[in-house]
Amino acid sequence: MMKREKVLIESSEVIAKDTVEMVLYSMYISDVAKPGQFIHIAVEGHTLRRPISIATVDRERETITILFKIDGSGTKQLAEYSVGKELDVIGPLGNGFPVNERDGSTILLIGGGIGVPPLYNLGKLLVKEGFNVKSILGFQTGASVFYEDYFKQLGETYVVTNDGSYGHQGFVTDVMSEVGDFDTYYSCGPIPMLKAIKERLPEKHGFLSLEERMGCGVGACYACVVKTRDEQGYKKICHDGPVFTSQEVIL
Rank of each mutant, 00 (worst) to 15 (best):
V127T: 11
A220C: 05
M1E: 14
E212P: 12
V14H: 04
F151K: 03
D58H: 12
G123F: 10
K3L: 05
I41M: 04
A220N: 14
Q247K: 15
V160I: 11
G167M: 05
D18V: 05
E10T: 02
T161H: 03
G113T: 02
K6A: 05
C188M: 08
T173G: 11
K34N: 14
C188V: 13
V14F: 09
S246M: 10
V175I: 09
S135T: 15
V23M: 00
T19Y: 01
E21P: 00
K3G: 00
G155D: 07
D163L: 01
Y120S: 02
G112E: 03
G206K: 05
D31Q: 13
R61T: 12
G84W: 11
A16L: 04
G130W: 12
Y120H: 06
L125V: 15
I197W: 02
D71Y: 00
Y150Q: 13
S53D: 13
S30C: 01
V159W: 06
Y234G: 02
E62H: 15
M2A: 12
L78M: 10
K17N: 15
Y81M: 14
G167C: 06
G84E: 12
G45E: 05
S11Y: 10
G180K: 00
G206E: 13
P98E: 10
C216S: 06
L93I: 12
P190G: 08
E248R: 09
M1W: 11
I136G: 01
D230K: 13
T173N: 08
E5T: 06
D149S: 13
Y120K: 04
V218F: 10
T184Q: 03
H168A: 00
G130Y: 09
P118E: 03
Y120C: 02
G72L: 03
F38R: 05
L126H: 04
G219E: 12
E5I: 02
P51K: 01
T47E: 13
A143Y: 07
G189N: 02
S11A: 14
N132E: 15
K85R: 15
G167S: 10
Q169A: 08
D163H: 04
K6W: 06
L137Y: 09
Q232Y: 12
K34F: 06
T173K: 08
S53F: 11
I29L: 07
Q247L: 03
I237A: 09
H239F: 09
I250T: 14
G233H: 05
T157C: 07
E212G: 15
E21K: 11
V57Q: 02
P242V: 06
A196Y: 01
I9R: 01
V57F: 05
A55W: 01
S135R: 03
K227M: 11
L210M: 09
